[in-house]
Write a protein that binds this DNA or RNA. Structure first.
Length: 104
DNA sequence: AAGGTGACTAACA
DNA sequence: ATGTTAGCCACCT
């Protein structure tokens, strides 16, 4: 089973209304240092694999998408749609982890 | 098949 | 607090 497959598996398990960080997923998938690789996977095939990519944010609890098709604004909207509060700040969209952090 | 590239992070200045 | 640096590592070409 590839790292990618494990990552996908975990991401699918993130419950609605909860969020996890790239590093957290990487750790669950067996490579605590591969956070950036997780981002890579989502970046490329997150949408076509039908994953809840919006539930994955960075360790600073900010939305960190950059790609034009999936801007932070869209992610914030999707999260809001499932009950996750996003706070708009000058530096981006911040997530209220005290309420929405996903505990495994 | 070797190397470039990130939707990352933690550690510093 | 804010910006930079240097490890990270799997995916893609």
């Amino acid at each position: 089973m590839s790292f990618q497959a494990r990552v996908v598996g975990w991401i699918k398990k993130i419950p609605q209304g909860k969020v996890a960080s790239y590093g957290q997923i990487a750790a669950l998938a067996g490579s605590p240092r591969a956070a950036i690789a997780v981002g890579q996977i989502l970046h490329r095939s997150g949408e076509e694999l039908n994953l809840p990519w919006q539930r994955v944010i960075n360790a600073q609890r900010y939305i960190s998408t950059t790609c034009l098709e999936h801007p932070a604004e869209l992610q914030a909207m999707l999260l809001k749609g499932e009950g996750v509060e996003t706070i708009k700040t000058n530096s981006g969209y911040k997530i209220d982890l005290s309420r929405h952090r996903w505990y495994n």
